[in-house]
Each structure stands twice: as structure tokens, then as C-alpha cells.
């Protein structure tokens, strides 16, 4: 497919939406305005933007505990997201899911997930529904390198392959399973080797470059939609902040030099440079995009702040469909 100016700008906007929202969420968490755990997606934006940019709007995705980026890149609403992070009734999950369970079924986003690897079998189910109903959609599961050490991943990979399902496995390989480096937790370094073990193709792409991800994802998606069965795209990427929270440096599990080196490959900067050098945008128009999106983020904070908390009687609502819990 032709990668037009519009696509290049669209990819940029998707990344900026994630970055500015996440940085804001980080600031709010630092000032103790967000309850619970916060797993920031900063640094990995090119993956969500590149993959979601290549999807049809109703292609399903499942996500991870680091899931804000996936929903935002798929078009998620700032207000409902920020409200959810604050535990407000107006949030995506009425304040009952929080950061780790952000979802938007209208956008075919079948949920972030607090259990590592657990979204992958669910994507298999969505892919099966696509196959059975012949709706032409594909299902995508985002997961980290660490998730591929969990049984659920292996069961899902094998089943997707055995049933030849329309599913794209997207591994966000950020080199760390929480705080443990990849080389301590697995004897291979490229997760696509696991795809090969289950009998489907995989390829590695630079996960710090949204265009590389978009192009690679598009190539795979076209084949998957055409009925070639599952494929795996492994994006080599990096988490600028720690597994949880807003600290990214002075840590006991990775060096500041490493973080600094990877920050030089910041996916936003990589793409901004490209947009400017190719004359598609200039510094002013880039700043204008950031300003507009920051305004939306600011509005979402205000919206969330002013939204009510759920009522106590909401506690038992939605445990079951069409029924009450006691």
C-alpha cells in the first residue's frame, strides 16, 4: 500500500495522543491524584500507532497491563480514559476497571488485562468468531516478551495455528519482563522463533519507528485477511519509564546510559525528523498538533476531576448481565 502524507501525519497524531496522555497521567500519579498502579506506554508508541493505523476500525485487539496506548492509538476517548484512571463513574469502565482494564467494545478493543498473557487466548476467540461468521475481520493481540513465557501464550499460539485463524500476534519486545532482563528469563531473544515453533511466520521490525511497524503490519494483515492464518510481528521497542510508575532512571535493573541511548531513538522524534526532512510538516505544524492534543488532554483532566465517583449502590451492578448480585 502507498504510504501517503495523510498516513504519515495520522501515525504521528496517534503517537502524540498516546505520549501526551501518558505524560499527563504520569504527572497526576506523581501528585497522588491517580489511585492504583500505572503502567506507562511511553517509548513504545510506534508499535500501537503503527499496528492500529494499519487496522480496520472493527478489527479486534486485546491488550496488556500497559494498555492505554493501544486504546488511544485505536481512537479511544481521552475523557473516558482519564475519568477511568481516576476511578470516576464517567470512565470507560464506570470507574470499576481502572487503568489495567481499560476497554472500548465499540472500538473492538477487548480490554487491557491485568494478567500477563491472558489477552492472547481471548484474541484467539475473537479470531474464531471472525472465521466462523466470515466477517472479514482480523483479531490482534498485543503482548510483551515476558508474556511469551506463560502457558496461555503457548496454548493460544498453537490453537491459532492449528485452527488457521485470522490473527496477528504483536509482540512488544521491550527487553524487560517487569524488572527482569530478557536474557535472564528466556534462552532465545527473538520471540518470532516461538511462532516458527507453532508453524506460522514471524518477522522482526524496528519498534521505535512507526512507519516500519505500519508497513510491516500492513504486509502481514493483508496476508492474514487473505486467509493465510496467523502471523507474528515482533517489534523491538523500549519502555522509557519503569514497569510501573513514573521513575525511569536510577534503577537497579537497567543502566541510565541504556535508557539515555534508547531515548535518542524516541519514536516521536524519529518520525518528527522524517516529517520535517521530507517537507511534509514543519516545526510549527508539529507544535500545533501537540498543542491541540495537549488541550484535549487538559480538558480530560478537568472532565475527570469534575466527574462524580460511582455511587455505593453501583458496587453490585454489572456483576451479571440481566441480574443482580447480593
Amino acid at each position: 500500500m502507498e504510504i501517503t502524507d495523510e498516513i504519515l501525519i495520522d501515525l504521528y497524531k496517534r503517537m502524540v495522543r498516546v505520549r501526551l496522555f501518558e505524560e499527563e497521567a504520569g504527572r497526576l500519579a506523581e501528585s497522588a491524584r491517580l489511585p492504583g498502579f500505572l503502567h506507562l506506554y511511553v517509548g513504545e508508541e510506534a508499535v500501537a500507532a503503527g499496528v492500529c493505523g494499519a487496522l480496520e476500525s472493527q478489527d479486534q485487539i486485546t491488550s496488556t497491563h500497559r494498555g492505554h496506548g493501544h486504546l488511544l492509538a485505536k481512537g479511544g476517548d481521552f475523557n473516558r480514559m482519564m475519568a477511568e484512571l481516576m476511578g470516576k463513574a464517567t470512565g470507560y469502565c464506570n470507574g470499576k476497571g481502572g487503568s489495567m482494564h481499560i476497554c472500548d467494545l465499540d472500538l473492538a478493543m477487548l480490554g487491557a488485562n491485568g494478567i500477563v498473557g491472558a489477552g492472547v487466548p481471548i484474541s484467539v476467540g475473537a479470531a474464531y468468531a471472525n472465521k466462523l461468521t466470515g466477517n472479514g475481520l482480523i483479531s490482534v493481540s498485543f503482548f510483551g516478551d515476558g508474556a511469551t513465557n506463560i502457558g496461555a501464550f503457548h496454548e493460544a499460539a498453537n490453537m491459532a495455528a492449528a485452527l488457521s485463524l485470522p490473527m496477528l500476534f504483536v509482540c512488544e519486545n521491550n527487553e524487560y519482563a517487569e524488572y527482569s532482563p530478557r536474557h535472564k528469563t528466556m534462552a532465545i531473544t527473538d520471540v518470532i522463533e516461538r511462532a516458527a515453533a507453532y508453524g506460522f511466520p514471524g518477522a522482526i521490525v524496528d519498534g521505535m519507528d512507526c512507519v516500519a511497524v505500519f508497513e510491516a503490519a500492513s504486509l502481514a494483515i493483508e496476508k492474514i485477511r487473505g486467509g493465510e492464518g496467523p502471523m507474528m510481528l515482533e517489534c523491538k521497542t523500549y519502555r522509557f519509564y519503569d514497569h510501573v510508575g513514573v521513575k525511569g532512571t536510577a534503577s537497579d535493573y537497567r543502566t541510565d546510559e541504556e535508557v539515555e541511548e534508547m531515548r535518542k531513538r524516541d519514536p516521536l522524534v524519529v518520525h518528527e525528523t522524517r516529517l520535517i526532512e521530507s517537507g511534509i510538516m514543519d516545526a510549527d505544524s508539529i507544535q500545533a498538533i501537540k498543542d491541540d492534543i495537549q488541550k484535549e488532554v487538559d480538558i480530560s483532566v478537568e472532565f475527570a476531576d469534575q466527574s462524580p465517583f460511582p455511587e455505593l449502590e453501583d458496587m453490585l451492578v454489572d456483576v451479571y448481565t440481566n441480574g443482580e448480585s447480593s
Binding site: A196, G202, I204, A220
Partner: peptide, 21 residues
């Protein structure tokens, strides 16, 4: 080169994966 034989050509052609092992 650990990355040799692992790029996107595995999606669009019958290129083999050259594993670490």
C-alpha cells in the same frame, strides 16, 4: 549477525526463519 534472516520478507515470501539456535 543475530538479526539476519528475520525481517518482513517472512510475511510476503517463503523466506525461512534463521533461528538463534
Amino acid at each position: 549477525n543475530p538479526l539476519a534472516g528475520k525481517d518482513v520478507r517472512r510475511f510476503v515470501s517463503a523466506a525461512s526463519l534463521n533461528s538463534d539456535r
